[in-house]
Design a protein around this nucleic acid. Sequence first.
DNA 1: TGAAATGTTGGGGCG
DNA 2: ACGCCCCAACATTTC
Length: 487
Amino acid sequence: MKPTIVLFGDDFRLCDNRALIWAAQRGPVIPIYILDDTNLNPFPPGGAARWWLQESIKDLSASILKRGTSLILRRGDRYNVLQDIINTTGAITVTWNRRYEPFLKKQDETLAAALSSNNIDIKIHDGFLLFDPTLIHTQSGTPYKVFTPFSRACLSTQAPPPPLPAPLKITGPSNLISDPLESWKLVPTTAQWPKILATHWHIGEIAAQKQLKKFTDDILSSYNIKRDRPDHDGTSRLSPYLHFGQISPQHIWHTIHKAALSTSISNASIERYLLEILWREFSWHLLSHFPDLTHKPLLDSFINFPWRRDETGVNAWKTGQTGYPLVDAGMRQLWQTGWMHNRVRMITASFLVKHLLIDWRVGASWFWDTLVDADLGNNTGGWQWVAGCGADSAPYYRIFNPVIQGNKFDPDGTYVRRYVPELAKLNTRWIHEPWKAPLNELEKANIVLGKTYPIPIIAHDKARERALLAFSHLKSTEVKPVFPRKT
DNA sequence: TGAAATGTTGGGGCG
DNA sequence: ACGCCCCAACATTTC
């Protein structure tokens, strides 16, 4: 029996890895990960993601080794590398799980065509999304551009297949050359930040499953209430695992449904979480249908929007020095931990786009570089949503007030105090608006505004007024709202 | 999965 | 008993 080459991509798992499981059932397997940085990928993984990638490769290597063979690491053009392996092993079949990042998708299609023309059998499996984007569409056959009907369509179609167990044994040739992972230099060896990130995360397939269990056991029951509270650990924190395929969305989907049956978890929490998973699905389906969305607004009216250029403002935003405690806490959480609470993502993004009138792509690219869960579908969808130029997105006049949001979702200031320690001693009354605190209150807390903590780089009411004016010019060309159809 | 402005209501103080 | 003002609480509309 000739070996089957399993080409790993964004699927660093054995469990429910359909390409791997399919190959292992047929016979010998050559699992391989190819780092292809010879190409012109417009969205190569950023710093934080490269760190997670490196750790994921280590984890996958170890677990494949336990099952009986080795993960082969190679760097270079994917076609050339595969041809080399094919020539030395006599393999005639290559399999992988489908990818959806526009550039990678195209690259995979080219690869499949090239190998096929050399009489290599290609078998492509699914597992990154719950539903096939070509199968979820409106009655007229067009992609959904509004979330609610999209989610309804997902929920009323055939349920995703249950996850498959990991292959017990993987056999394969053991004489293949593999690069030492260190030689790829995915992460700078001298930098401090990877060490700091490492204190916040456990990476790997087992870690992903543990996190899912922790979520369903301890967090899910109050998800509906706590998911908006950055001061609580109320979210799933599964995003990086999901992005790197250390857990499949099918696995999550079925686990959540099981939890809904066997425990007293409220329907509201279950439904809320499933909707969040479907937002991911929505973003990816849209990106799959409109591959330009990574750099082009869905709404044409935004194409010539006069975004401001403001190096100083962008820098204050990136480093968490805007003078708005909640915004700064979020941006610092991002830098320190490679992750930011979802509500705070909306608030910080809104601040950049609406208060500072900076192009959403500037923010998207910073998130892309710093998030361990940097995910082209979610990131693109999220930023277009905030900017108001995407599908079913926030209207232009929805401008988050960081003070109100802070009082509402971080009422004790716990989150701000954690990430903006220079404000830690400030009375809760002023924690989200230190510029209004009486001088003696600031003194008591050892704060000198403008020295130990910045004065707001822009006044909220002025910024709001300016944004409303700027965005209101779009109105005339805005897409008209859809009215209910006559039946 | 906003916020601010504007409108409405109703209870209490008071002449 | 009544009208009037004030204003908080809530509702609606506007950005």
